[in-house]
Design a binder for these strands. Structure first.
Lengths: 145, 145
DNA sequence: ATGACTGCAAACTCTTTGCACAACA
DNA sequence: TGTTGTGCAAAGAGTTTGCAGTCAT
């Protein structure tokens, strides 16, 4: 997977053009930031990071951009914590560990056989897109208390 | 499982006494409501239902009570939708289907082998309490659009 | 009687919306 | 030039907190 800035930019530009949407500096910078930080981020974190390159960027723009990127398939909302929305630039299927004490979310890379769940979902008249496991418990750090 | 009102009340009273906490009419009514409606509910829905029996009940009390019930092991927070918090009186492990269109959450009763995930969590220094699958897609109703 | 619980009001956090200006195409 | 996108401000939704009065024990 090529992750240099040019490729990342080109990929976004291509996707935007394909849908007749405009290429703006905010979109480029937010996209670079998401790809660079291969982790779960909140809108606030995106704003903080982006503001260093592009001061004056606003939170509504960050939300609008993240929503757009979700439609473009560049980010996914993480169904995990109950607090702020989390956006994940890892679009491949993976699971999450959620600490019930500090709320931190981290990736869990294991493979689980989800076929029975997907079959069950279909049997219930549901059309599944994807399935992910949420494991709740205490993280490394909080366990020390 | 006995689900008559007397048993439900006694069970709550016992758990409250065991922790030196008071038995109030709000707690009894909220508990009966949760057991009667064996589904995911929001704080708002609890308030609406409880208000019929106990007018004047407040939302802060509902939240405080649900939090208490969570500590007593009577309810669990559902890690699913991004909207309002959902509380679930089914405390046995089960999975959820979440509709990406209407946001509805329904139970999915299938059995999935979670051992690899729990082992993986432990290997990452995480102490897992429980794990549940969140399956996203389109529900029966929304698929008709 | 005493301390926990409740209701009210207000604060808070996070997210969304409306509108005027800027800037991509 | 014609829209789409942005920033600002404000509104909304949901949850939490502070405080005075009430009620269980």
């Amino acid at each position: 997977m090529s992750t240099d800035t040019d490729t990342i930019d080109s990929d976004l530009i291509e996707r935007l053009r394909a849908r007749g949407q405009r290429v703006t500096s905010q979109r480029l910078v937010i996209n670079r930031m998401l790809q660079a930080r291969d982790a779960h981020v909140t809108a606030e974190e995106v704003l903080t990071a982006v503001s260093q390159t592009l001061p004056g960027t606003s939170l509504p723009t960050v939300y609008a951009t993240l929503e757009l990127f979700e439609r473009l398939g560049l980010v996914r909302r993480v169904s995990a914590g109950g607090g702020a929305l989390l956006f994940d630039s890892r679009t491949v299927e993976h699971h999450h560990l959620v600490c019930r004490s500090c709320g931190a979310v981290q990736d869990l890379d294991v493979s689980v056989d989800l076929a029975p769940a997907l079959d069950g979902a279909r049997a219930a008249g549901f059309a599944p897109d994807r399935a992910a496991l949420v494991v709740e418990g205490l993280c490394d750090r909080c366990r020390a208390d």
